[in-house]
């Protein structure tokens, strides 16, 4: 049976009919057309499908779309409506990513951290992105970029 759900995606209201076995990841990518959440492991291990659901990062491959009825979803498309934000610019400046597959998830994981903790330690940054696997960079340039933002905001 189809369920009619409402999602607020990056500030826009969407009404979609979903089947109970459609995941939020599929609905965002295939129906809403938001392609930044990536299809990685689809079992909660890699973090590539991360989105912010009602203020908190979740793995959208492990959320049924119907569960998200009435919720707000934020993806990197929503962060950068007017061009890259400060954090994204720092990642660009440090050339933090290579293939970029992990990038949307990492950006959102760090955004969630910075929303509640404006001066995290390097360890706290690492903990925040511990669930976002990156196969290219070794994480160093990612952490450095975040610490650039933290230090800039401190001064």
């Amino acid at each position: 049976m189809k369920h009619s759900i409402t999602l607020n995606v990056n500030g826009e209201e969407w009404d979609v009919d979903v089947a109970p076995n459609d995941t939020l990841l599929e609905v965002l990518r295939e129906r809403v057309g938001i392609k930044s959440p990536k299809v990685g492991c689809e079992r909660g291990d890699c973090g590539a499908c991360t989105v912010i659901l009602d203020g908190k990062t979740v793995r959208s491959c492990l959320v049924l779309a119907v569960e998200a009825d009435g919720s707000g979803v934020l993806t990197v498309e929503g962060l950068s409506k007017e061009g890259p934000n400060e954090l994204q610019q720092a990642f660009i400046d440090r050339n933090s990513f290579q293939c970029g597959f992990c990038a949307p998830g990492v950006v959102l994981a760090v955004s969630e951290l910075l929303a509640t903790n404006t001066s995290p330690t390097e360890d706290e940054v690492k903990e925040a992105i511990a669930g976002n696997l990156c196969r290219c960079t070794g994480y160093t340039p990612i952490v450095e970029a975040v610490m650039d933002v933290v230090e800039k905001d401190r001064t």
Binding site: G44, G47, T50, K56, T57, V58, R59, L62, V63, A109, E112, L113, E127, A128, A130, G131, N132
Partner: peptide, 9 residues
């Protein structure tokens, strides 16, 4: 437990 994105849920 796991990572933030899992702990949140």
């Amino acid at each position: 437990v796991a990572s933030k994105g899992i702990r949140n849920r």
